[in-house]
Structures are given as C-alpha cells and as structure tokens.
Computed example of a mutant assay.
Amino acid sequence: MKSNVCKLLSTAAIAATISAGAAASTLEDVKAKGFVQCGVSTGVPGFSNADDKGNWTGIDVDACRAVASAIFGDAQKVKFTPLSAKERFTALQSGEIDILARNTTWTYTRDASLGLDFTAVNFYDGQGFMVRKDLGVKSAMDLDGATVCTEQGTTTELNMADFFRKNKLSYVPVVVQKADEALAAYDSGRCDVYTTDKSGLAAHRTKLADPSAHVILPETISKEPLGPVVRHGDNQWKDIVTWSMYVQVNAEEMDISSKNVAKIKSETNDPGIKRLLGVEGDMGAQLELPADWAYNIIANVGNYGEVFERNVGPSTPVDLPRGLNALWTEAGGIMYAPPVR
C-alpha cells in the first residue's frame, strides 16, 4: 500500500513538473499575441499619460516601448491598460498585463510577498508635499493640523503617517482611490495639502488651473525607487525587462543616441559598442531575442537621457532636473547599469 501511494505521489509530481514545463513563458505569450500588454497609471504627465487621441507618452510608457522594440523591433507593439494604485498588483498577478510600469515604488514587502519581481529603477524619487502659496507654509514642519489628500493603496499613505507620527504633528487624511481624485479634492479646497512622490507632484501641478499658485515644499520624507514590475518565477522575462532599461543607460554612457546609433553601428571599432549593438557576440540569443535587439531599443526609444529629457526634463511642463537620475559619472547622479558583455 505504501509503495502504491509513493508511486501515485511520484506520478503526480512528474505530471506537475511536465505541466509546469509545458506552460508558455511570458515571452512566448507576448510573441503569440503580437504585442506587450503594459499596465500604466490613469494619468501622470511625464510618466504615463494619454492625450485626447489616446496616444500614450511618458517614462513608464517608454519602458514598455523599449521591451516591444527588443522583441519585435517595433516600439508601437504595445497596448496600455490604465490602472489605479489599488488595481495594479492584482492585474499583474492575474496575467491581465505583462509588465506593470506605473511609477511604482520598490519596497521589501512588495518584492517579497506579492509574487512579483521588480526589475530596474527607471526613476529615483522621494515623497513630498504640495500646498497653495497663499497659505504661507514654508516647511512640512508647519503642517500641524493640516488636512492631507493622497491616493489609496500606495506607499504614500504609510510614509505620510510615519512622518506626522515621528514629528508629533496632527493631521487629517483624505484618502481616495485615484490620483486625479486626490488632486481634484486638493484643488477644490477639500484639503490643505497634496502628498505623493515629488515627480508626481510636479506632474500633477501642471493639471491645475494656475500651477504657479502652488509650491512643493523642500522636505523629501522617503526613498521612492520607481520601476517596472513583472511576475515572479519567469526569470527570462524579468531579464528582458531589466536589460531593456540597462541598454538605455549604457547607451547614454557611451554617447549613443537615437540620432547617431545607425552611424555608430556602421563605423565603430569599439568592441563594447559592437557587442551592445549586435555587430559582434551572441547577446540577443541569450535572451531569445534578435541580434539587433539593443540597437532597436536605442533607435526607436532613445538612450536614458533622451527618455528623461523628452518626458520630464526642463523643456517640458513637468520641468524636473536630472538630480539623482543623472548618470553616476555626473555630479549627484546614481543612475548606473551593469555592462553588456
């Protein structure tokens, strides 16, 4: 009897193993349907935002376009699913989306307990507070008794509670489901303060009737490393999403951009650049990608500096400095990528 039970258990284990092995990988699924399904925000200018014609732009949008370029050689082979903060992780866990690129903070709990993996940081950020200039508030330490609006299901709620508790300040939270609802509550005067990541404050301020009437306070109360997220267990897919970002950072280091990449590819004698652009080596095959996968990312989407400047840089309404997001070779920058070799 014991022997038969062991045989049954062994057979079941083998069947489970075969079934798991036969399951299609995310890359196979994406190739079969012909596009990447990308979960994004419901609208954060500079990160993921749709215009009135449904055209999506932003740093997070470009993260997904980079992956599409790596796989298909076409940055347009992406479909976008707008998600609230409350919906985002469930959508990824259930397989509704292939990548979550929604200005999402990498934390221990999210990485360890949700069945998800963070890939590479595409924006180093921190939480702050925005108030109306006419309140005369100069510091977050002056917010005792304030009513504070924020979005549900975010690290922002916890950071806000920690800040006020640590500094022995009282506050009244107004927590709503979507970022636009939080902004609308703040704009209508329902709360004195709006809090989220500082990049989000700068982005959402552009939506207000008079952006100049609002000020972002100087304090940064948290670390918010933002980046794309994938399901745990598919290491190949995680590597593809991660290295699609690293390619862009390496390209900026090497002074390769969308404008000069074709010329450099045809003329370079640099072994590192040849490997990056698929002229030499076997880099694409290691991820089951075409030899020119990295070239296509740079040609179609640009290097990291181009992505930053196009979406949130000083020439845009969001008007953010590079700061921590400058290359590690620049003063104050920590943006760094492993080498492609």
Results as ranks from 00 to 15, higher is better:
residue 220 T to W: 02
residue 203 A to L: 03
residue 219 E to F: 03
residue 220 T to L: 05
residue 210 D to N: 14
residue 220 T to A: 01
residue 204 H to W: 09
residue 210 D to R: 09
residue 205 R to C: 10
residue 198 K to M: 14
residue 214 H to S: 08
residue 200 G to S: 04
residue 211 P to S: 13
residue 215 V to Q: 09
residue 205 R to V: 05
residue 207 K to Q: 07
residue 195 T to P: 01
residue 212 S to C: 05
residue 222 S to Q: 09
residue 195 T to D: 04
residue 200 G to F: 10
residue 195 T to W: 00
residue 222 S to F: 09
residue 221 I to C: 01
residue 217 L to N: 01
residue 216 I to S: 03
residue 198 K to P: 07
residue 206 T to D: 13
residue 197 D to H: 13
residue 207 K to D: 01
residue 210 D to K: 15
residue 218 P to K: 10
residue 223 K to C: 12
residue 196 T to I: 02
residue 207 K to I: 05
residue 195 T to R: 02
residue 205 R to S: 12
residue 199 S to T: 09
residue 219 E to T: 01
residue 218 P to L: 00
residue 195 T to M: 01
residue 198 K to S: 10
residue 223 K to S: 15
residue 198 K to L: 14
residue 206 T to R: 07
residue 208 L to M: 15
residue 211 P to K: 04
residue 201 L to F: 07
residue 208 L to G: 12
residue 204 H to G: 02
residue 198 K to V: 13
residue 210 D to E: 07
residue 194 Y to N: 04
residue 223 K to E: 14
residue 221 I to N: 00
residue 208 L to K: 13
residue 219 E to L: 01
residue 195 T to C: 03
residue 204 H to Q: 12
residue 198 K to Q: 15
residue 221 I to K: 00
residue 209 A to Q: 13
residue 218 P to G: 10
residue 204 H to F: 15
residue 194 Y to Q: 02
residue 197 D to M: 11
residue 223 K to L: 14
residue 196 T to M: 08
residue 209 A to K: 11
residue 222 S to C: 14
residue 200 G to I: 05
residue 221 I to W: 00
residue 196 T to V: 04
residue 218 P to H: 05
residue 200 G to A: 10
residue 215 V to P: 02
residue 224 E to A: 12
residue 219 E to V: 00
residue 204 H to R: 08
residue 196 T to S: 14
residue 197 D to A: 11
residue 214 H to G: 03
residue 204 H to Y: 13
residue 200 G to N: 03
residue 221 I to M: 03
residue 213 A to S: 15
residue 216 I to L: 11
residue 207 K to C: 06
residue 223 K to V: 13
residue 198 K to I: 15
residue 201 L to K: 11
residue 202 A to W: 08
residue 215 V to S: 06
residue 197 D to I: 06
residue 207 K to A: 11
residue 220 T to S: 09
residue 224 E to V: 10
residue 217 L to A: 03
residue 213 A to M: 07
residue 201 L to N: 08
residue 216 I to K: 04
residue 205 R to H: 09
residue 211 P to C: 01
residue 212 S to N: 14
residue 202 A to E: 11
